[in-house]
Design a protein around this nucleic acid. Structure first.
Lengths: 172, 172
DNA sequence: GGCAATCATTTTATGCTTAAAACAATTCGG
DNA sequence: CCGAATTGTTTTAAGCATAAAATGATTGCC
């Protein structure tokens, strides 16, 4: 399948034909484009959250996780879901408890575990922000057709699976 | 252009035609998936760079920009290309000059401008890292067929354009 | 020619993020 | 049971990142 573009590349990259140690320029470009898209959208969302609600993106993301878990989550759960380090969550939670958005208590059954949940205030504020946030996202993706969206979902699922597999190879 | 699929969408999304306050759940899910993929890959690359070369991702990214510009770049150029704030670049460059990877000088023709370029050491180290980095990326995307890659490239280009348009609407 | 607007960069204040080490509570194997 | 892993969280040190204000240099417009 990639025959044509491979050949082109072999020719124009330096005409050294056979012994190329493999050409991964396409994947590299794909990765850069993926990163660019994400950075672009993330920056836009970050800016709008700050402007409209004076809230940071990490705070919003954390509240989003908790909004889906009415019974609360442990810090580890949050850290896994958000794909950030444990220490990161500790600090984030500290600040959100301080500002009255989160409630934090030690588990009855396992005193190592901290369970956090949204307070009434936290939930109300989050819902308000989430509603507007959803319209921003819709607007940012507005030029994609429903078919585009479906196709992207499919390809990104495949990408995620591929990356997870690769990551697992290195850390068995 | 999207007229046909819009209609399809109106029909198959729930046949509720007119009065929904609008449903953007699909776009939201797409955004989350995009973010997940990027975070996953970025984390993996970050970890490998640290393990193998004891270098951070931002340092690597900055060097990558400079490697493509043998005559150097201004800090503004770098900041635009990397899509990060000016102040961020200032600090990053400071540390890379300190460690001998970058050379920095004030422009002859405009004393506001700082031109930075890779030193011999910086270029050599970058090339060494970049070669390995390329194989990681190839591995992370290994399960995508060349057709998948092309299709993703196309859809992400469309996404980028859509997001840029949306961003421009808010900041004319 | 001079002064306002603009531009490139730096500084400041604050917050996010990580990796690694430290702590503390629980579980498990002998 | 009891010590050795394991697990959940926090701490630490360093670096990354942003927005906004400050600084210094250049340009453009009377």
């Amino acid at each position: 399948m990639p025959v044509v573009s491979d050949c082109i590349n072999m020719l124009d990259s330096e005409t050294k034909a056979v012994e190329t140690p493999e050409d991964h320029a396409e994947e590299l470009r794909l990765w850069l484009r993926l990163l660019t898209c994400t950075t672009l959208i993330e920056g836009e969302v970050r800016g709008r959250l700050r402007q409209r609600f004076d809230v940071t993106l990490p705070r919003f993301d954390l509240m989003a996780q908790l909004d889906k878990a009415p019974d609360g989550m442990t810090l580890s759960d949050v850290s896994k879901r958000m794909m950030v380090s444990n220490g990161n969550v500790t600090g984030l939670v500290e600040r959100l408890v301080e500002s009255g958005h989160l409630d934090r208590r030690t588990s009855e059954t396992d005193r190592r575990v901290q369970v956090i949940r949204l307070t009434k205030l936290g939930r109300a504020e989050f819902r308000r922000m989430a509603a507007e946030h959803e319209t921003w996202i819709a607007d940012l993706f507005a030029d994609l057709t429903p078919k585009d969206v479906r196709e992207l979902m499919r390809l990104l699922a495949k990408t995620k699976a591929s990356a997870q597999k690769s990551a697992a190879r290195r850390r068995p």
